[in-house]
Amino acid sequence: MDTILRCEHAAFHYPDTDGAVLHDLSLSIERGSFTAVLGHNGSGKSTLAKLFNAILLPDSGKVYVDGMDTSDEAHLFDIRRRIGMVFQNPDNQIVSSVVEEDVAFAAENLGVPPDEIRRRVDDALATVGMTEFVRHAPHLLSGGQKQRIAIAGVIAMEPDCIVLDEPTAMLDPAGRRDVMQTLHRLRNELGITVVLITHHMDEALQADRVVVISDGRIVLDGAPGDVFTHCDTLASYSLSAPETVLLLSALQDAGLDVPLTAMTPEACADAIAAALSE
């Protein structure tokens, strides 16, 4: 497996607080994968995101980005360039009052020549589907559009991986859908590794792998089809399985022979129809 991010026994606590946020956490993220990190508020998932690009350093244990130790200052900018970060509040990560200038910000910081910045900005805006807004003022855009501008600003660094900390929490359904489609495009067309931190089950369902974190520990890890069948376990971590799985599970309890893995409405309907026709 070609690993891009690796946590080895990472532990972390915030200064002046009791209790660790992360306990002895080990996790490897495969290059080119789409991983959802799921957890309730306060589970430590945002802290984990900050370990990934050396915003925070673990108290003990190690975090490696592409083999580079995040605690090694010499690699700091190399790590941050490779691991792009997108945060929850789109307003608070837009630096400039013109869209193209904002998208250019990271590339400018990296000292990329102006012609190359131009190309990267245009490409990044095309990737997120915001080309027509190149000269707009960001504050007049919708939440979903702002978030896509923030994503474009990160792709302009040409990162290997993008870590998003609840990027859709403040968006309406249309904005959420656009952001999710953009993430799939990044992964499928540019081969960028995506780590999506979320508490929306339907978003996690779209990943290839779901890691559930609770109280700073990994409690479930696997393909969505596997993780979401653990209805009771999820409930005990303040999360809930998708509505389809809950329905199938209730049917199973009532003695109907349906698989819990039929998570999309189509698969669910098919499974129920098949079970009823038996």
Partner: peptide
């Protein structure tokens, strides 16, 4: 935080789009 994540390090070595 977002600026740091986007490799902001003051004016040194910074280029400009325009």
């Amino acid at each position: 935080l977002a600026m740091e994540c986007r490799c902001y390090n003051g004016g040194k070595g910074r280029t400009r789009l325009h």
